[in-house]
Simulated scan of single mutants.
Amino acid sequence: MCPVFAGGKPERDTRSKWYLSETEWKDSVFPNYCTGWLYISTPRTANRLVKMAPTEDFLWIDDVWVTGYLAAAANIKHINLREYFTMMWEKAVMLKSAQNDEIYHNDIIASPTGRQREIAEVLTKNAERCFKAKCYNNIYKTKPADKESMAAQELLNRVLPTYLPL
Results as ranks from 00 to 15, higher is better:
62 D>T: 04
63 D>F: 08
65 W>M: 02
65 W>G: 00
66 V>R: 02
66 V>A: 04
67 T>M: 11
68 G>C: 12
70 L>I: 04
71 A>P: 02
71 A>L: 05
71 A>R: 02
73 A>C: 06
73 A>Q: 15
73 A>S: 15
73 A>L: 05
75 N>A: 14
76 I>T: 07
79 I>F: 13
79 I>P: 00
79 I>M: 14
79 I>Q: 08
80 N>K: 08
81 L>A: 14
81 L>K: 01
82 R>C: 05
85 F>L: 10
86 T>W: 08
86 T>H: 09
87 M>A: 11
88 M>C: 07
88 M>W: 09
88 M>L: 15
89 W>C: 02
89 W>L: 06
90 E>T: 08
90 E>C: 07
91 K>N: 03
92 A>F: 10
93 V>N: 03
95 L>Y: 02
95 L>D: 00
96 K>E: 10
97 S>Y: 12
99 Q>E: 15
99 Q>L: 15
100 N>K: 10
100 N>R: 04
101 D>Y: 10
101 D>C: 06
101 D>Q: 14
102 E>F: 12
102 E>M: 14
102 E>N: 14
103 I>L: 15
105 H>T: 05
105 H>C: 05
105 H>L: 08
106 N>Q: 14
106 N>M: 12
106 N>T: 04
108 I>A: 03
110 A>D: 01
112 P>S: 07
117 R>V: 07
117 R>W: 13
118 E>M: 13
119 I>F: 06
119 I>N: 01
120 A>P: 02
121 E>T: 03
123 L>F: 07
125 K>I: 05
125 K>Q: 10
125 K>E: 11
126 N>C: 08
127 A>N: 04
127 A>T: 06
127 A>W: 12
128 E>I: 13
129 R>G: 00
129 R>W: 11
130 C>P: 03
131 F>V: 04
131 F>A: 06
133 A>F: 08
133 A>G: 06
